[in-house]
Write a protein that binds this DNA or RNA. Structure first.
Length: 278
DNA sequence: ACGCGTGCCTGTTGGC
DNA sequence: TGCCAACAGGCACGCG
């Protein structure tokens, strides 16, 4: 999510106020099954770019004659290896380019918007706002962590699942991936295997504070670049240098020196300090 | 209703 | 050096 937030900030100046002309879908599976055809974007203007959880949302200005049937939003989910960036109008496609949009700036100059995705997990969804509610994932997406209160968070943890699994569940809380789940649990001193419902109100409050703190710091660092992630200008993030838990299994804890442990929790590789997290 | 395991997908890594 | 299995992970889906 800090990566998506960084992409919103870096891509927005390049696409805001620009108009879609042609779309080239190079990999059919990149289009979400609920999406309208990409051809429906033609003539629409990007009136804003924002983020909801890990989803990148393009607001589309209904500038066409047939505005009644025109989509008013395009959502891009980059998943792990997706990248989105602008290119010159005559640029060649990359090996992993899944979609390319020909666009025009307010001054009339042409350019392209590329969606590259090596592992092809990412999705594009063009839709009207009402139709969007047919998308279960969107409908049930949990609250934004930075806007969530401790009182709102606690009842969402009423589950026998491991707290780590709950943090990764986008309907519990939006935007937390494997990296930030491990980091937040470490910062809060909470063992990732604990049943979510076993957390006291004080612990849940501490965890939420840690989530907000970690996410804010990661956004300030422009995200974490393990390997693939780059922002819309091609820049890597720096938060990977601040990891205490993620990817550090078998290494010494940066706080107490104990060896970090590793297990699969919530279906994901998890690292934690057996001494600092209980 | 809930919680868990598996599949999707391809580039990278590490063991033999 | 080359080969290949394991691994990375966000989410959909099916099972018990």
């Amino acid at each position: 999510m800090p990566e998506v937030e960084t992409i919103v900030r870096s891509l927005s100046p390049h696409v805001s106020g620009c108009v879609f002309e042609r779309s080239a879908l190079l990999r059919q599976s990149a289009l979400h099954p609920l999406s309208l055809p990409l051809a429906s974007l033609a003539g629409l203007c990007v009136s804003g770019l924002w983020r909801r959880g890990k989803l990148l949302v393009f607001d589309l200005f209904p500038a066409r004659q047939d505005a009644g049937s025109a989509p008013d939003v395009m959502i891009v989910h980059l998943r792990m290896t997706g990248r989105i960036f602008t290119q010159s109008a005559n640029a060649e496609l990359g090996r992993h380019t899944r979609c390319a949009w020909s666009m025009r700036r307010p001054d009339g100059s042409p350019f392209q918007l590329y969606f590259d995705d090596a592992r092809t997990f990412g999705k594009i969804l063009v839709s009207g706002r009402e139709r969007l509610l047919e998308w279960k994932f969107w409908r049930e997406l949990g609250p934004e962590p930075l806007e969530l209160s401790a009182e709102g968070f606690l009842p969402r943890l009423d589950s026998r699942r491991a707290i780590k699994a709950c943090l990764l569940d986008q309907s519990v809380i939006a935007g937390i991936g494997n990296i930030y789940a491990d980091e937040a649990l470490f910062a809060a001193g909470i063992n990732p295997s604990r049943p979510a419902a076993s957390l006291s109100a004080a612990e849940a409050s501490r965890l939420l504070s840690s989530i907000k703190n970690i996410i804010s710091l990661a956004i300030e660092s422009k995200g974490s670049s393990i390997r693939d992630y780059r922002d819309a200008d091609g820049n890597a993030g720096a938060f990977q240098n601040n990891f205490y838990a993620y990817g550090r299994a078998g290494k010494e804890c940066r706080k107490c020196g104990a060896l970090l442990e590793k297990a699969r929790i919530g279906g994901r590789t998890t690292a934690w300090c057996p001494n600092c997290q209980s």
